[in-house]
């Protein structure tokens, strides 16, 4: 089970959270002007990155708020947690620290 740091509540076990998928997807500002290909890319295409992945989580069984995280999908180690609206942190090049266990 992952240990997730909610930027509002602190360290909590994964079962308190729901996953929100790839972060920083912006709904088109001019929806009427999009063609089918652009809609398909917005709705369905995801980076599915093998490596550092920016993603959304929601502290559904806690404060209820959405936030973002950087996670390495080859190890499941989190590199950063940040609030919605904040810029994505530069991903550290150093290997991530070993995970802590849930108390």
């Amino acid at each position: 089970m992952l240990l997730i740091v909610c930027p509002y509540c602190g360290k909590r076990p994964e079962i308190e959270f729901t996953y929100g998928g790839q972060a920083h997807l912006t709904r088109p500002l001019q929806p009427a002007q999009l063609d089918d290909q652009a809609w398909a890319e917005f709705l369905y295409m995801r980076t599915n990155r093998r490596g550092v992945h920016a993603e959304r989580w929601r502290h559904a069984r806690g404060c209820g708020r959405f936030f973002n995280a950087l996670r390495d999908t080859t190890t499941d180690h989190f590199l950063a947690f940040y609030k919605t609206g904040e810029a994505q942190p530069a991903s550290p090049s150093a290997p991530p620290a070993p995970p802590e266990s849930v108390p």
């Binding site: 089970m1 729901t18 996953y19 599915n48 093998r50 993603e55 996670r71 999908t73 080859t74």
Partner: peptide
């Protein structure tokens, strides 16, 4: 599991 990953392992819960 809830999240995307390439680790070939998941959580016990």
């Amino acid at each position: 599991d809830a999240y995307t990953s390439y680790t070939q392992r998941g959580a016990l819960h």
